[in-house]
């Protein structure tokens, strides 16, 4: 009896003890800062203080939502994230399909494909910045070698090209992640399906759309959502390469928030913008969780 009582007590308390430290960390490092940030967003606070002395107001949200710069930042964020996802997924699928085949040197090619993922963001930003330089960069030098090109864009100092240039860098950095997951996804598609479809006379294009893509559906959903979430918060490339310029062409929401906080000392409106970004991220995360749950149900 005593042994049973002892085991019962352990069953009741052990999970709480094991989970306790993690819950405390989540409370201190996630919930509390979120709540504190929300409070700051409802005050006139200029500094990143505790905000307990400031009265509450919705002025920041009204100001942020009526500011054209905010909507420009939202638009830039959407284009940057969407472009990153589209480019990474397309390139990722193509690379995964190639790497799924047997060929000589496949191991080396796999390493080269994954390499951008291993390069630190800061290093990548500085190197690409120089590659894009209109006077000294290797990119324009290479383009001018082509016979049909006699003028090259100014890339990072051209408002029409700057965002595209940064999206390309982000695609270069993130497509290896897509390759890894999609390659793993391809392994789960049975070869029998391809053999059967080949017997039925389906060509490669038909097999891709009828077998490969449906088979990668869930992996693709996860890749798309993770890349979207990460791109929303991507600060390093934009800040290091253009700081939101030229003329606001690359001024994504995270960069805009940075300037509001650290340059203009407007913590209240910066946190209001942060809340906006948080809402966008929560919506995406919710979709991600729903997909994960549907996977578990299946």
């Amino acid at each position: 009896m005593r042994l049973v009582d002892h085991a019962d007590r352990q069953d009741r308390w052990l999970p709480a003890i094991m989970l306790g430290p993690v819950l405390v960390c989540i409370l201190l490092l996630v919930i509390a800062p979120l709540a504190w940030g929300l409070r700051i967003s409802l005050t006139d606070s200029r500094m990143i203080g505790l905000g307990f002395k400031d009265g509450l107001t919705f002025k920041n949200y009204l100001s942020v939502l009526s500011d054209p710069d905010t909507w420009n930042a939202v638009w830039v964020t959407i284009v940057f994230s969407g472009g990153t996802v589209l480019g990474s997924v397309l390139l990722g699928i193509a690379a995964a399909l190639v790497l799924d085949r047997e060929f000589w040197g496949r191991g080396i090619v796999r390493v080269l494909v994954i390499l951008p993922w291993a390069v630190p963001h800061v290093v990548a930003a500085l190197v690409w910045q120089w590659m894009y330089n209109p006077d000294f960069g290797v990119l324009n030098y290479g383009l001018l070698l082509l016979p049909w090109i006699d003028a090259t864009p100014k890339w990072l100092s051209d408002p029409d090209y700057a965002l595209l240039a940064i999206v390309l860098v982000n695609v270069w950095k993130t497509y290896p992640f897509a390759v890894l997951l999609l390659l793993a996804g391809l392994q789960t598609i049975s070869d029998d399906l391809y053999e059967a479809s080949a017997i039925d006379g389906a060509g490669p294009v038909r097999r891709f759309f009828d077998i490969t893509l449906p088979g990668l559906r869930r992996v693709l959903a996860i890749v798309v959502l993770l890349l979207l979430i990460w791109s929303f918060g991507n600060f390093v490339f934009i800040f290091l390469m253009t700081q939101g310029g030229p003329a606001g062409a690359t001024n994504a929401l995270v960069v805009h928030i940075y300037f509001e906080t650290f340059r203009f000392f407007r913590a209240g409106s910066a946190f209001a913008m942060g809340s906006l970004l948080l809402v966008m991220s929560i919506i995406l995360t919710s979709i991600y969780i729903m997909i994960l749950r549907s996977q578990e149900d299946d």
Binding site: K154, S157, D158, P159, G245, P246, A247, G248
Partner: peptide
Amino acid sequence: ADKIEEILYRDA
């Protein structure tokens, strides 16, 4: 500076 960038880069 933002307006100067528009002048320089967008020919505003």
